[in-house]
Design a protein around this nucleic acid. Sequence first.
DNA 1: AACCCGGGGTT
DNA 2: AACCCAGGGTT
Length: 346
Amino acid sequence: MIFSKTLNNWYSINKRDLPWRQTKDPYYIWLSEIILQQTQVAQGLPYYVRFTEEFPSVFHLANAQESEVLKLWQGLGYYSRARNLHTTAKHVANQLNGEFPNNYKDLLKLKGIGDYTASAMASICFNKPEAVVDGNVYRVLARYFSIDTPINSSKGVKEFKQLAQELINKKDPATFNQAIMEFGATQCKPQSPDCTICPFVKSCIAFNTNRINELPVKIKSAKAKKKYFNFLVFVDNNERTILEQRHGKGIWQNLYQFPLIETSKSCDFKTLNNLAKKHSLLNGHTFELSLYNDQDIVHKLSHQHLHTKFWIVKVNNALPNAIPKNEIHTYAVPILIGNFIESFNF
DNA sequence: AACCCGGGGTT
DNA sequence: AACCCAGGGTT
């Protein structure tokens, strides 16, 4: 109880003024929580503003096309969030009369809502005593109680969840949950937290045993794999180009890209020229190939490093299903493609 | 339990 | 280069 009181006092003084803190409407809280998954406030904030403007209610979002939702999500990453967002909006609008469930168990059934988001919505919107455990909470608890259990082990997940549940202030779970996350985000930071101004400086075990920089413990993930992407940027005699939609299970599902040739290593002009000759889109066409970027563009994802070459493919006749240059910007593309489109003068 | 899924930022 | 971020889904 003393923990909760100290925390709430800190929060009342130090909390940031953020738009999703002005409401308890489940739709807006849900939007903010999905956008902020694995995403820092500074990055997610403009997306939250655009989504609430474009889709002011769950019905607006439900009535949109997935392509519109993906386009608005473009650049934020983890695009399954956007696809699941749309799926759940349609379900809530059409099956639940536009009303989100008011408890953890039923919220958890919705696509894209896991333990964290169900707890956050149940507590913030409906004042239910459901403790959230996000990256901030893991860090705060691991340090305050000096807990060595890896936060990304199944044992750690259970242990920290139970601890958070024991600590939560059941009289005001909404404030407690937001306070402990905010505390982790701005005071109990991952690197170089200023413990001299921390309200828990006397009781934090990690600080008093000089273990702040050892905690929390996390099992290391595998190193990123290198991949070699060659995008074919077609330019036909009408100044049109080709975009294809990605399907299947990999990255960027349902987003658009230039036709891709993936190779096992970086390839030179001759190799790519031979591969291009065999490409179905160039069947019966003569073309002129040139390399746009002299050095590979290395696009770093969490677990893949994409070594990328953009090849300009000029064709002297008209390509079927080609896209006029003024329509390119209407397609949702990965940021890697988006950056190229901005720099390339079609 | 292990792996996949983005992009931006800090150190 | 390694780590972090208001995590969730799939296998």
